[in-house]
């Protein structure tokens, strides 16, 4: 479903701020894979997801989604294959627009946007039904401005918008990190539910090693722009947090420097 081959990305090349964020990433995901990603601060996790989305062009390598080489496509043209939830709850929705307007924008991802009326009554009924799955009471607030919602509500809505078009690939970048523990758990549960129900292929960055172990069928660990550990199946299920910390120390020759990650151990 996804094939990332030999991808390199350096920021601010040739300046004092030069930063090699991705150092030759090779990664292949089968349809239905749910991969959790962990790694230290600045390991290149977000850069990997952003490269797949086309937020910036990569220096070298290729990215193929479901047989389509998207390496040179601009961000908005890749969007039809992707669903994304960002770390910042403000990023994934348009604050000044209503809930139903945001949903209708997401519903037209990958479609031509013409001079037809933006929301039909039939859609409205569908949105209400979808929102009720969130269990947050948003189904009665279709014409509330998204800016009035809490961070957790916004993130749940963003998640719904990310999956409503059955993306080839769902990308979650620490999407619960900014939420309080209870809301974070709810949003994570919803993510798991949507991924399972729709048999989505997904990648989830998390700083919570327990979550990384519990969720998904495969786990990768990144360090200095490389994938240093890639585990799946039974072996992954049997991992413990201590195993992961030890693995990291062995493979990178240093202790894990993700403070938030250690805290959430």
């Amino acid at each position: 479903m996804l094939k990332v081959s030999g991808v390199y990305k350096t920021f601010n090349k040739g300046t004092v701020n030069e930063k090699k964020a991705l150092n030759g990433i090779d990664l292949e995901l089968k349809a239905g894979d749910f991969v959790t990603i962990i790694g230290g601060n600045g390991a290149g996790k977000s850069t990997l997801l952003n490269s797949i989305c086309g937020v910036f062009p990569v220096d070298r390598g290729s990215i193929v989604i479901d047989g389509n080489d998207v390496t040179s496509l601009p961000e908005h043209k890749r969007a039809k294959y992707l669903g994304r939830v960002f770390q910042d709850p403000m990023m994934g929705t348009a604050a000044d627009m209503w809930i139903e307007e945001n949903m209708s924008l997401a519903f037209r991802r990958g479609q031509r946007r013409g001079l037809k009326w933006a929301i039909t009554n039939k859609e409205r009924a569908m949105y209400r039904e979808m929102l009720s799955q969130l269990g947050l009471g948003l189904e009665d607030r279709l014409s509330s401005k998204v800016g009035l919602l809490s961070g957790g509500q916004r993130q749940a809505l963003t998640l719904l918008m990310a999956v409503m078009r059955q993306p080839k690939l769902l990308l979650l970048d620490e999407h619960t990190a900014a939420l309080d523990p209870k809301t974070a758990a709810t949003v994570l549960e919803l993510s798991e539910k949507f991924i399972n129900e729709n048999k989505l292929t997904a990648m989830m960055i998390t700083h919570n090693m327990n979550d990384a172990i519990i969720h998904g069928n495969r786990l990768i660990m990144m360090n200095e722009g490389r994938v240093i550990y890639d585990v799946s199946g039974q072996e992954k299920k049997e991992l413990t947090v201590d195993d992961l910390l030890k693995k990291f120390a062995d493979l990178s020759g240093a202790a894990l420097d993700n403070d938030r990650m250690l805290l959430s151990k």
Binding site: H76, A79, T93, L105, R113, G114, L115, A118
Partner: peptide, 28 residues
């Protein structure tokens, strides 16, 4: 009328949140 259409909505989204707009396939 125009800002109630699909295209009009995508213009509003562009002004409101470019990241969100592009992530939803809008040519900002």
């Amino acid at each position: 009328w125009f800002f109630g259409t699909e295209l009009g909505h995508s213009l509003r989204a562009t002004g409101c949140n470019q990241n969100m707009a592009r992530a939803n396939g809008i040519n900002t």
